[in-house]
Computed example of a mutant assay.
Amino acid sequence: MHDHSASELPSLRRQKILLILERDGKVMASELSQHFAVSEDTIRRDLAELDNAGLVQRVHGGALPRPKDTGKDYFTRLDEIDEVKIRLAQLAAQQIRNGQTVMFDSGSTSLQVARSLPRDISLTAVTASPMTAIALSEYPGVKVILAGGQLNPKTMAAGGHEALRLLSGIKADLAITGVCAIHPEVGITSLHFDEVPVKQALLDCAARVIAVTTADKLGAVEPFVVAPCERLHTLITERHVASGNVEDYRRLGIEVEQLQD
């Protein structure tokens, strides 16, 4: 039975190719072409994109898995923060007001927002990320509440019942989140299953949610669904994105702010 729905959305089809690759240990372009009812040229383009992203290793006629964990741990990702992410973080920091209670998601993007606040800001900050808590503690007027629990070495954030209990007991004015992937139909998705409940709690407990993301995350899909896009109030992203992407989110009622050149 052909998977026509996946053929309509390249990002979804590529995600399913990754799942098939994980299951079978190898994929062949000819078989994937029949499975998804698309041409082999389309599949080859899919495999080329996945290879460029470091997710598969192309071989003649198909692809093999990349070795697990290419070494890009949390600290490596921090070192790779570029000018665009810094500018996005600065734009998000301008949305934060004195006196607010603000939740900061885990991840390098939210950490960069924390580092971009005005020196004299006064607020209550809540986070499950020790790195973000340390950055926020450098501001004299910021009271930091750190959610505890078991530390996930991949995300460098706390998770589990202890973190969820603390987060769910707070009513925040604002939540700042980065996203692994966001798709107008699939919603906000994550690469890590165990961080989904904490991200959901963060979205549930804030009156307003701001997502900060580079353009490559728009239209992407990861395996674990966090929430529909409508849970976001503001999306901050780059100026130049794939045609139509930004309007898809505006049609859902999300305010979209883009960097100016």
Score class of each variant (00 low, 15 high):
D69G: 10
A6T: 09
G159A: 05
N152T: 06
G71A: 09
R45E: 10
D120Q: 10
P197A: 08
R165I: 05
T124K: 01
D3Y: 00
A181T: 13
I145N: 04
L47P: 06
L164D: 10
E257D: 09
G159S: 14
Q95V: 07
T234G: 05
L47F: 02
D216E: 09
G141I: 01
K171E: 15
A215Y: 12
Q57I: 13
D69I: 12
L47Y: 03
V142W: 05
L218W: 06
V221E: 01
S116P: 00
G187Y: 00
Q90I: 10
V56D: 01
H233I: 09
Q100R: 00
A93P: 00
T177K: 05
D261T: 11
L252F: 07
G169V: 11
N152F: 04
E31P: 04
T101S: 12
L9G: 05
M103N: 10
Q150C: 04
A53Q: 11
F193A: 09
Q15S: 14
A172H: 08
L136V: 13
L203C: 07
A135H: 06
V126C: 09
Q200V: 12
G187A: 05
V84S: 08
E138M: 06
E49N: 12
G178W: 03
Q15F: 05
E83Y: 03
L55T: 07
E80Y: 09
M103Y: 06
D51N: 15
K26A: 14
R87W: 09
P67W: 03
D41Q: 07
R77T: 11
V226P: 03
Q57V: 14
A227G: 06
R13F: 02
E49M: 11
R115H: 09
I121D: 13
G61D: 04
I81R: 04
F36L: 10
G25I: 07
E238Y: 11
G160W: 13
D248V: 04
K68P: 06
V142F: 01
N98G: 08
L203Y: 12
G253M: 10
T124V: 12
L12F: 02
P140D: 11
E230C: 06
I17S: 05
N52P: 04
A133R: 02
D41I: 14
R87I: 08
L164P: 07
T42D: 04
K154E: 14
D69M: 09
S39K: 05
Q260W: 04
Q57H: 11
H4E: 14
R115C: 11
S116N: 00
V225R: 15
K85A: 08
L218C: 00
V59I: 15
D194H: 14
L111P: 03
K199G: 07
K72G: 03
A48S: 14
C205R: 15
S190Y: 03
D79I: 10
V84G: 03
A128D: 13
N98C: 02
D41P: 04
D41L: 02
G141R: 07
K171A: 15
P118T: 00
A172L: 04
M28N: 02
A163S: 13
L55N: 01
V225C: 04
P10R: 14
F104C: 13
K143M: 02
E238Q: 15
I254K: 00
